Computed example of a mutant assay.
Amino acid sequence: MRLKPIPVSPTAPMEDARRHPGCRMLIYCRSCRFARAYDPARIIKRLHATGAGGFRTPIGHVARHVARDCPVCGRRQWISTLAWPEALDAREAKRLAGVYRN
């Protein structure tokens, strides 16, 4: 899945993901650019369950909680940000906003 990063501050809280319907949490390796996308709601639940954060956790700090090494280069230099799937168009984003709102 190809993703387009959303220009959001790394200090913005995780709850800002609700302002971008259909977005994904993109965690990528700084060294080799290996990337994985995750559902922001599941990350928030996981942070809350482990006691490591929750809604107010800054987006840039999520990468600090990744305990695995990169499967490509073997380093642990993760960066986290929000991103939209390239296939997401304005109509689908509006539909998702309605689903989240109701």
Results as ranks from 00 to 15, higher is better:
70 C>Q: 08
86 E>K: 04
40 P>N: 02
41 A>Q: 03
55 F>P: 09
49 A>I: 01
70 C>T: 08
29 C>D: 11
4 K>N: 12
60 G>Y: 06
21 P>F: 02
58 P>A: 10
86 E>D: 14
83 A>E: 06
21 P>K: 04
84 W>I: 01
47 L>N: 04
29 C>G: 09
53 G>K: 05
63 A>Q: 01
84 W>D: 15
73 C>D: 15
73 C>V: 08
80 S>N: 05
26 L>Q: 11
13 P>N: 13
10 P>T: 01
7 P>F: 03
72 V>R: 12
15 E>H: 11
21 P>Y: 02
42 R>E: 13
41 A>T: 05
34 F>V: 04
48 H>R: 15
62 V>N: 00
2 R>A: 12
46 R>Y: 04
1 M>Y: 05
33 R>I: 00
58 P>D: 07
56 R>A: 15
44 I>F: 00
61 H>R: 14
4 K>T: 14
86 E>H: 10
23 C>I: 05
29 C>I: 06
48 H>E: 13
81 T>A: 12
63 A>W: 01
30 R>W: 02
55 F>D: 15
55 F>I: 08
1 M>E: 07
65 H>G: 01
13 P>E: 10
78 W>M: 07
73 C>Y: 05
49 A>M: 04
81 T>H: 03
61 H>N: 13
39 D>N: 13
1 M>F: 06
40 P>D: 00
63 A>E: 05
8 V>H: 00
62 V>S: 01
72 V>H: 03
40 P>T: 00
20 H>G: 03
85 P>F: 03
69 D>Q: 07
61 H>L: 13
85 P>H: 04
36 R>G: 03
76 R>T: 07
38 Y>A: 03
29 C>T: 08
3 L>I: 07
17 A>R: 08
13 P>R: 12
81 T>C: 14
52 A>Y: 06
76 R>W: 02
86 E>M: 09
71 P>G: 07
65 H>K: 09
79 I>Q: 14
54 G>S: 10
3 L>P: 01
54 G>W: 08
37 A>D: 09
21 P>T: 03
63 A>G: 04
5 P>I: 00
25 M>E: 06
15 E>M: 13
56 R>Q: 14
58 P>C: 08
11 T>D: 15
14 M>P: 03
67 A>S: 11
61 H>M: 13
4 K>W: 05
58 P>Y: 11
47 L>W: 00
18 R>H: 10
41 A>E: 09
23 C>G: 07
28 Y>S: 14
53 G>E: 12
12 A>T: 14
65 H>E: 14
31 S>F: 03
28 Y>G: 07
85 P>D: 03
71 P>W: 10
74 G>W: 06
30 R>V: 00
22 G>H: 07
28 Y>W: 15
35 A>M: 11
